[in-house]
Nucleic acid binder design. Sequence first.
DNA 1: ATTTTGACTTAAG
DNA 2: GCTTAAGCCAAAA
Length: 102
Amino acid sequence: MKKSFKEKVYELCRAIPKGKVATYGQIARLADKPKAARAVGAYMRMNPDSPNTPCHRVVASDGSLTGYSGTGGVTGKKKMLLAEGVNFIGSRVNLSWSKWNN
DNA sequence: ATTTTGACTTAAG
DNA sequence: GCTTAAGCCAAAA
């Protein structure tokens, strides 16, 4: 049985512990395709507010919040992450403290 | 099958 | 720190 790349991506999104964040590149790497960061983002766009896929815990490689078609856009995403205990530096996530699987 | 597009990443100036 | 360029992946038309 082979799992599709996207299934792994969704599963990894769900696997991100509360209060932590992962980068697209990190997820892509864990999903067996280290260069598929763009594809990961594409899947996130498909499922921005699905209750099963907390895509808001996924950020860019430098901790900047990108995209997010959900409520409030990146602003809502930032607030959500703050509510989960993720530390922010200005408009970026402090990956030094909150990066998942680090 | 080909082209376009997109929530990416890294390197270089 | 910001901009430009190139690379790579998958879905949709």
